[in-house]
């Protein structure tokens, strides 16, 4: 009897040790996140002011604001979404609603996965070679938006696919039974039902696009450009590139530190807002869209 109890208590002790270890490790992951967020928030908060957000950079970027970088990032988000959103949604509709299970569907899915796995710097090389040089767009919003659009296409396709899959098949059958065609069913039944989840996917990909640096290094980003773009063939400043430049290769790295903290905070804020919005939407509509 005593032997059995010993084994049992030994067993429970091991379990308690393991569980507590796992708990500590898990919370240390959360702690890392909190350290990063609070560090940048506390340091960046001092730099943020209305003027910081709306003024042009001055004095070799040691003074002034980040207005052109914010506007530039906004243009890049808009441009890449104009490209990726329609194509991504149409593509997902084809894969989920039209394509029959078989080689083609598997192939397209494999290629979408592969595209998602290609490093962002390779997108940068590709965008430079195709859009900037071969098609002659030069360093421009157009070239940068297309590069970012291609990069985020797999994200849009995947989230839209999940959203379409979440619509129960019986709704489609009901629609067909009433005499609707496939296209009518998609337009009037499937899309309206999956719209919230598709929008969630869109918001998440905006988060991704806003922070990408490597693809825009050689396709659009300008080092210092204290004016706003006037056409899609202009270069712009962008928040992530701005942060990279002023924290590594500015003329006065120490003096521009506060601006770097401020820029990092704005970037983090965008990501936070995007995530909160997406989570809020998800919760509101009670459906689940998988991230990434």
């Amino acid at each position: 009897m005593a032997e059995g109890e010993k084994i049992s208590s030994n067993k429970m002790l091991k379990q308690a040790i393991a569980f507590n270890l796992f708990r500590i490790l898990s919370f240390s992951v959360v702690a890392i996140l909190i350290i990063i967020l609070s560090f940048i928030t506390i340091k960046g908060f001092r730099a943020i002011s209305w003027e910081f957000l709306t003024a042009m950079p001055e004095d070799g970027m040691t003074k002034g604001g980040i207005y052109p970088a914010i506007i530039g990032t906004f243009y890049l988000i808009a441009g890449s979404m104009l490209f990726a959103f329609p194509i991504g949604v149409l593509s997902a509709i084809y894969i989920n609603e039209y394509a029959k299970d078989g080689f083609f569907k598997r192939f397209v899915k494999l290629m979408t996965n592969n595209l998602a796995g290609i490093p962002s710097i390779v997108f940068g090389l590709f965008g430079m070679s195709l859009f900037v040089n071969t098609l002659g767009f030069g360093d421009s919003i157009l070239a940068g938006s297309l590069t970012l659009g291609l990069l985020t296409l797999p994200v849009v396709i995947r989230t839209t696919e999940e959203a379409l899959k979440a619509v129960d098949h019986s709704f489609r059958l009901g629609s067909y039974a009433l005499g609707a065609t496939k296209l009518q069913t998609i337009r009037r039944v499937v899309l309206p039902m999956s719209l919230p989840n598709i929008i969630t996917g869109l918001i998440l990909s905006i988060g991704r696009v806003s922070g990408e640096t490597a693809p825009i290094l050689f396709t659009v980003a300008a080092y210092f450009l204290p004016k706003l773009p006037t056409s899609i063939f202009d270069q712009v400043m962008a928040l992530p590139y701005h942060l990279y430049v002023i924290s590594t290769s500015g003329t006065n790295i120490e003096e521009s530190r506060p601006i770097a903290y401020g820029t990092a905070l704005v970037l983090i804020a965008i990501v936070l807002i995007v995530n909160l919005l997406a989570n809020g939407l998800r919760r509101y509509f009670g459906n689940k869209v998988k991230m990434n």
């Binding site: 569980f19 796992f22 708990r23 898990s26 992951v29 959360v30 890392i32 996140l33 990063i36 560090f39 940048i40 998440l204 988060g207 991704r208 806003s210 922070g211 990408e212 640096t213 490597a214 992530p240 590139y241 942060l243 990279y244 924290s247 770097a260 990092a264 970037l267 983090i268 990501v271 936070l272 995007v274 995530n275 989570n279 991230m291 990434n292």
Partner: peptide, 29 residues
């Protein structure tokens, strides 16, 4: 396997947030 559903619901979005932070910000940090 271990955490309660409540803890999991807090952890999951935090992990997603970790995935959302841009790489320049990690580099800067």
């Amino acid at each position: 396997e271990i955490a309660s559903e409540k803890v999991r619901r807090i952890l999951k979005p935090l992990i997603e947030l970790l995935a959302g932070i841009p790489s320049v910000v990690y580099g800067f940090f």
